[in-house]
Design a protein around this nucleic acid. Structure first.
Length: 851
RNA sequence: GCCCAAGUGGCGGAAUGGUAGACGCAGCAGACUCAAAAUCUGCCGCAGGCGACUGUGUGGGGGUUCGAGUCCCCCCUUGGGCACCA
């Protein structure tokens, strides 16, 4: 009777697969539920983060399935990307071969965990049948003007030899390899995500099923600022400079102007003057720096151009400076500086001795530009502002735009921090961008009948940069328009392109007529529950939302947002150990607290996300061999709420294993009760009542807890139920007791099915029930059984618990009060004092206030 | 600097404004055993007391309330995000 999962887990995995119970088809008669976990990159091995992610998804999916939903639960592979190409360069293995071998291996690992995927819907994003549709959509985007090419300064990673999106630059370093990112000018393909900035932002207020922190991150990323563009004339010239400002109300306080070093006017203004040489030096020094260096330097630096702009309301001259902290890619690259009311401008003014004039005064305060020690950025009324004096600042914002707009010198406008999405990658292992360059016809899309543009197989990977650049057979083509000689685009697409729509492809993964079947997508989409790591809060989730909106506007889809509910699961962490000489250590490299290599004292590091480089990983496969799939799954659900970090605990895993052994023994010891036909148990007799109360309460709590993703407390509710069944197990006297026990055991098998499905199936079979428990109906509970006949009422005196009394349920206020005041302990605490107030909470407590 | 979370036993964590610490881990004791492992049962915030019990306790300080881990204000700490964004 020993719990030995190795004896049956594989059996159930095979039976689920052979019976095809998790294969689904659209059925408009049935309510659907789309449960999706973020698709993995086929690195070669699953890690504990995957296990946790998919265990959460599987519990939800199996629960909904038992609840009667038509559940779609697909899995696939985000198969393009850099590691495959690096493997090709290092090990002379083709990326294709490397990738599919990894997929094979990882698929085997996932299957050994018993997840309820519909494998018939599996996709790999690197297959031509998949990326064909991406290419088709890309051409449509180009036709609609949403995909375009431009020469631009791009973030360039010298090690990966590729362009990075802003989102892929972390602290000025490549998100993949951590090399210092440089700026480089290149012709690149972009998607106009900025056209959708407003809508993407608006909908962050219409996604109640998303965690607030993710929505906030997206809002920050989009970064909408409402303000105005104001045109300034350059003194003694016809030139004009337009600035963007969010504070047009402070225009009277604008005492100088700043230009980004890259601003075209910067060079124009100094051309042929004594400021030219110094100015050019300054521009080269600053503009050449990559963003990281420039933003590292907190010191504001500027260079006077020798020229002035004219303040359109005061008519005063404003010296124009080139400033390092002004960025060309935000706003217009030119700033009207209001030192009195902007911290950065204030610092700059103090360094260069420029005038500070306060134009907004807070209520009850007076500001003096000459003596201010910091900028005032709060609300207030206008001063030193001519006709606008005394006006509240928010009103003045509109008024000043109106006044200048009449003269054509200003307009209200909005600016976004969000940039267009650069999708060109100088890489082999990605979806080819389906365009051809012809000298006569220019940029020509590949005709739809010629799609997909397949990656050529025979290329030389032993080169620096993009292997496709050397693939002459691939590059040299005839122009589809004129038939003349032409060259193929060799850039491939950012891999975020594939993950922006894979959830749509799952709806009809083998469709060869179109990107997906609209009917199928209309039935299955949107995703009801999306689960994945919070590290995708901005990039992936924003791109996918954008993509869906674009497809909607092309008529492919009839909804706005892809993911109704989002759960961001926490990381799986473990303690690290470091040696002062040899760096991170594996646990087996430490003996008696010392490093086995050099004998130095090993230092316990912080608890950090499991990673190979920090040598604190735990291999799911090894755990599976030792404890079985159910134990790993249970631990990753029970150790903490899904959003929290899990700190790895070997003892915790063993505790879970022990619990499953307990369930196994409980079932085996009492299996005969299940093989007997009992009538429906009656809620009578002390033992039967105790059993039924425990099981119905557990059903109630587990059901509610899964719905609200409190999987850890759902598991503990099952543990409580098991504890109760153990406590009465030996004392079943009446037939009704036995009936109640049998009923409860059967319910228990169902309750554990979403969490530990193998064990549930095994016990279900042992009891002689028809397969599968996975398909069985989720148990329901009787509310009346979940409450007890007798209750404790707590007596508080002046807010402190002083006594506890036992009553029949629903005891009346009068009766309870009488008993309370007769209670010895209560009497002692009231003793001689006056009762001021009495409060009665039915079935809970009595609160007495005395003086 | 700005924005968002979160601070509860030795640990992971529970608690619709109503008995703080469910469940698990670790620990302690007992049963079974020649013995050990496994298993089962019990105890387990801190301080004082043989004890019934008393005091105290959810980062700190105020407040609302008969009653606050939970609501409000201020502060501290930690984690996450953004950062010369005009």
């Amino acid at each position: 009777m020993k719990y030995n999962p190795a004896a049956f887990e594989a059996k159930w995995q095979k039976r689920w697969e052979e019976s095809g119970i998790f294969r689904v088809t659209a059925d408009t008669e049935k309510a659907k539920f789309y449960c999706l976990e973020m698709l993995p990159y086929p690195s070669g091995n699953i890690h504990m983060g995957h296990v946790r992610n998919y265990s959460i998804g599987d519990a939800v999916s199996r629960f909904k399935f038992m609840k009667g939903f038509n559940v779609i639960h697909p899995m696939g592979w985000d198969a393009f990307g850099l590691p495959a190409e690096n493997a090709a360069k290092q090990n002379k293995r083709h990326p294709d071969e490397w990738t599919y071998a990894n997929i094979d291996k990882m698929k085997g690992q996932l299957k050994k965990l018993g997840f309820s995927y519909d494998w018939s819907r599996e996709i790999a994003t690197c297959s031509p049948e998949y990326y064909k549709w991406e290419q088709m959509i890309f051409i449509k985007l180009w036709e609609k003007g949403l995909a375009y090419k431009k020469k631009s300064l791009v973030n360039w990673c010298p090690d990966c030899e590729t362009v990075l999106a802003n989102e892929q630059v972390e602290d000025g370093r490549c998100w993949r390899c951590s090399s210092q990112v440089k700026m480089k000018e290149l012709e690149q393909w972009f998607l106009k995500i900025t056209d959708y900035a407003d809508e993407l932002l608006d909908f962050t207020y219409r996604l109640p099923g998303w965690p607030e922190k993710v929505l906030v991150m997206q809002r920050n990323w989009i970064g909408k600022s409402v303000g105005a563009e104001v045109v300034f004339r350059v003194a003694s010239s016809d030139e004009e400079i337009t600035v963007f400002t969010t504070r047009p109300d402070t225009l009277y306080g604008a005492t100088f102007m700043l230009l980004a070093p890259e601003h075209p006017m910067a060079k124009t203004l100094i051309a042929g003057t004594e400021y030219e040489k110094g100015g050019l030096d300054f521009i080269n020094e600053t503009a050449g720096q990559d963003k990281a260096d420039r933003t590292d330097d907190k010191k504001k630096k500027g260079y006077f151009t020798g020229r002035c702009a004219v303040n359109p309301v005061t008519g005063e001259d404003m010296p124009i400076y080139i400033a390092n902290y002004v960025l060309m890619d935000y706003g217009t690259g030119a700033v009207m500086a209001v030192p009195a009311h902007d911290e950065r401008d204030f610092d700059f003014a103090r360094v260069y001795g420029l005038p500070v004039r306060a134009v907004i005064e807070p209520e009850g305060g007076k500001l003096d530009g000459a003596s201010m020690t910091e900028a005032y950025t709060g609300p207030g009324k206008l001063v030193n502002s001519g006709e606008l004096n005394g006006m509240p600042y928010d009103e003045a914002k509109k008024k000043i735009i109106e006044i200048l707009a009449e003269k054509g010198k200003a307009r209200a406008t909005v600016n976004f921090r969000l940039r267009d999405w650069g999708i060109s990658r100088q890489r082999y292992w990605g979806a080819p961008i389906p365009f051809i360059y012809c000298e006569k016809c220019g940029t020509v899309p590949v005709p739809e009948k010629d799609l997909p543009v397949r990656l050529p197989e025979n290329v030389n990977f032993g080169v620096q940069g993009n292997p496709l650049d050397g693939a002459e057979d691939f590059i040299n083509v005839k122009c589809p328009k004129c038939g003349g000689p032409a060259r193929r685009e060799t850039d491939t697409m950012d891999t975020f392109m594939e993950s922006s729509w894979y959830f749509l492809r799952y709806c009809s993964p083998r469709n060869d007529e179109n990107i997906f079947d609209k009917k199928e997508a209309d039935y299955w989409m949107p995703v009801d529950q999306y689960i994945g790591g919070v590290e995708h809060a901005v990039m992936h989730l924003l791109y996918a939302r954008f993509y869906v909106k674009v497809l909607r506007d092309m008529g492919y889809l009839s909804f706005d947002e892809p993911f109704s509910n989002l759960l961001t699961q926490g990381m799986v962490c473990k303690e690290t150990v470091k040696c002062p000489n040899d760096g991170w250590l594996y646990p087996e490299e430490v003996k008696d607290g010392k490093c086995v290599k050099c004998g130095a004292e090993a230092v316990k590091g912080r608890v950090e996300k499991m990673s190979k480089s920090k040598k604190n990983v735990v291999d799911p496969d090894a755990l599976n061999d030792r404890y079985g799939a159910d134990t790993i799954r249970l631990f990753s659900l029970f150790a903490a709420p899904p959003e929290n970090e899990i700190e790895w605990s070997q003892n915790g895993v063993e505790g879970c294993h022990r619990f499953l052994g307990r369930v196994y023994r409980l079932a085996c010891q009492n299996i005969n009760y299940l093989k007997t036909e009992y009538p429906e148990p009656a809620f009578e007799g002390e033992t039967a009542k105790k059993i039924l109360r425990a099981s119905h309460a557990a059903i109630k709590k587990v059901t509610a807890d899964i719905e609200r993703f409190q999987l850890n407390t759902a598991v503990s509710a099952i543990m409580e139920m098991v504890n109760t069944l153990y406590s009465v197990g030996g004392a079943l006297e009446t037939e009704n007791d036995k009936a109640a026990f049998a009923w409860s055991l059967k319910a228990l098998f169902k309750l554990i099915a979403p969490f530990t499905p193998h064990l549930a199936e095994e016990l279900w079979e042992k009891a002689g029930f028809a397969p599968f428990v996975s398909k069985a109906e989720w148990p329901s509970f009787n509310e009346a059984y979940t409450v007890s006949d007798e209750i404790n009422i707590v007596v508080q005196i002046n807010g402190k618990v002083r006594s506890e009394l036992r009553f029949p349920r629903d005891v009346s206020q009068d009766e309870a009060m009488e008993a309370a005041f007769a209670d010895e302990k209560v009497k002692n605490h009231i003793n001689g004092k006056t009762v001021v107030k009495k409060i009665f909470v039915p079935n809970k407590l009595i609160s007495i206030v005395v003086k």
